[in-house]
Design a protein around this nucleic acid. Structure first.
Length: 519
RNA sequence: CGGGGUGUAGCUCAGCCUGGCUAGAGCGCUUGGUUCGGGACCAAGAGGUCGCAGGUUCGAAUCCUGUCACCCCGACCA
């Protein structure tokens, strides 16, 4: 597919706007050919353009197309070496279907294929439930490699029956509210206590007995400004990913002026009581909704209130009210499973992501096929990506020691390396060259170090680069009866004849590859 | 977009706070010699408008102002 893609395709799906600065647009004068091109950050639009041109009949479905290509995304801040770069390599696949069931089957196929690919790459990976973000669609899984070097967070249950990206992870639903007597609202003077900890210290209460009241603003539809109040328990952090999804539009924390206009108080003294008529939406976290006799802001600078009760003091139903899970889980929360165990938070590298897209792209771009009744239907789509650079990064994170990389055989740049230790010794170099040629002749991917460098230098380089198998030829090894073989990351080395060394390498390659091949 | 930091030899950096001889180190490079299976050693050498512009001063790498670039943290992130 093209790397430079027509801007008009992105306008058709609206992603020229929603992707914002992620899209690299060529800058040309109005009407100039450059003004109409975008360097592709992903290829849903392009593949859908191909689909609407060529997929006309249900008889052509299902079909899955893939490519390996350079992508470009205007990341706000590229970082972590090869992990997060503006330009990167992706293997991306797209599937087209005439039914949800067909999509489900192919999703399962590709999910399983991706598991085999990552297993074959020697990666300790994990599939987790994921948020679909700006891609759209409903169901999605990410493939993660757990490592400190990662920049994603995942929640995994101790029992191992639940794993999700932190953006999506949910805790078990809250228990029913405690059966206690409801207290009246009482106003308390809390000068300068804008933060939850300050209020707790002054009132002698705990964060989990407080309501955090957050004012957000955004736009709805074309241009209409909206104000949204979100409630979470005092000890919880709001998840803006979840909040935006529930609100159906991107929200941002309101500026101090808007907060003052909504609450009548400075930042830090907002409460949900009496606000419903002044806002467009009230979004209540399900755990905030079961609080009893909570403390929160009084909508009056330097004052808080106690004895706030959901349902009595602010509505839990009605047109403007949404009850949902909008908080980020924390380490130790219970998993939302039948037999709940605590969730643990880990950092991870995302190496692959699969989505059920549905008809988001085919509908907006008019990619339709004719079904058996002759009526036009939008294709049902899936998309499936693998970050190739990140496979390298994750493999190195997972397989290295103090001396350098230890490549899994399947993705090593070379399977074996022959080191001729003394390039000025003709016999050493003749034997080394012979081993190299014999290995190459039987299809082993072999690197030959014949540089005129000191022995230690070449050994250190070999360790650093991490080619799995090593054959060393030197005056010393020849005197000891042959050549020396060893495996990166494995203790010990052995001396054997030239012919045995060639057989040893071939055998080791075969065994390592077999060990990496899923059953 | 917010916060912090750094620009001095090819590379990594010290020197700056507290202005003062000819601006330093390690690595790399050049030449000669020795060494040669785990990133050698000895000797001699080349190499810098101290990011840029302006100012203060008898004197600026050092202090002040401006400017440019890069890095880190955060926000954001199919």
């Amino acid at each position: 597919m093209p790397g430079l893609t027509p801007l008009e395709l992105w306008q058709e799906t609206g992603r020229d706007r929603t992707m914002g600065d992620t899209l690299l647009r060529l800058a040309g004068p109005p009407g100039d050919w450059r003004s109409g091109l975008v360097l592709g950050p992903t290829h849903e639009e392009v593949i859908t353009e191909l689909a609407r041109a060529y997929l006309k009949s249900y008889k052509q479905l299902p079909i899955t197309l893939y490519q390996i290509q350079t992508k470009f995304r205007g990341e706000a801040r590229p970082k972590s070496g090869i992990l997060r770069t503006r330009e990167f390599l992706m293997k991306d696949a797209y599937s087209f279907h005439d039914s949800k069931e067909s999509l489900d089957r192919e999703y399962e196929n590709l999910y399983a294929a991706y598991c085999r690919i990552f297993g074959r790459c020697g990666l300790p990976y994990l599939a987790v439930e994921a948020d679909t973000g700006a891609m759209g669609g409903d169901v999605s899984h990410e493939f993660m490699v757990l490592t400190e070097a990662g920049e994603d967070a995942v929640a995994i249950s101790e029992r191992g029956d639940y794993a999700a990206n932190l953006e999506r992870a949910q805790a078990a639903p809250p228990a029913a509210p405690a059966d206690v007597a409801l207290q009246p609202i009482q106003e308390v003077h809390t000068p300068g206590a804008g933060r939850v900890e300050d209020v707790c210290r002054m009132l002698g209460t705990r964060p989990q007995d407080m309501l955090k009241t957050l004012v957000y603003q955004g736009t709805e539809g074309a241009e209409r400004r909206i104000r949204v109040v979100a409630l979470v328990r005092g000890d919880h952090e709001i998840s803006e990913t979840k909040l935006n999804k529930v609100a159906g539009t991107p929200l941002e924390l309101a500026d101090p002026e808007t907060i003052a206009a909504v609450t009548g108080a400075k930042v830090g003294f907002a409460g949900p009581q009496g606000l419903i008529d002044r806002i467009d939406k009230l979004i209540v976290d399900r755990e905030a909704a079961v609080l009893r006799n909570a403390a929160t802001g009084a909508n009056k600078t330097d004052y808080h209130v106690t004895g706030i009760n959901p349902g009595r003091d602010f509505p839990l139903s009605g047109d403007k009210v949404i009850l949902a899970d909008i908080r980020t889980v924390v380490d130790g929360d219970l998993a939302p499973t039948a037999n709940p165990s605590p969730l643990r938070l880990r950092t991870a590298i995302e190496i692959g992501h699969v989505f059920k897209l549905g008809t988001k792209y085919s509908h907006s771009m008019g990619a339709t096929y004719l079904d058996q009744n002759g009526s036009a239907q939008p294709c049902i789509m899936g998309c499936y990506g693998i970050g190739l650079n990140r496979i390298m990064a994750a493999a190195i994170e997972a397989h290295h020691d103090d001396d350098g990389i230890i490549w899994p055989m399947s993705i090593a740049p070379f399977e074996a390396q022959v080191i001729g230790l003394d390039p000025r010794d003709t016999e050493v170099m003749r034997v080394a060259g012979e081993i190299h040629d014999q290995l190459a002749a039987v299809g082993v991917d072999v690197l030959f170090d014949d540089r005129d460098e000191r022995a230690g230098f070449k050994f250190k380089d070999a360790d650093l680069v991490g080619v799995p198998l090593r054959v060393v030829v030197g005056k010393k090894s020849l005197a000891a009866g042959g050549v020396e073989v060893s495996q990166r990351g494995v203790e010990g080395k052995q001396t054997m004849s030239l012919a045995d060394a060639v057989r040893w390498v071939i055998g080791r390659v075969r065994e390592e590859m077999a060990a990496l091949t899923p059953k």
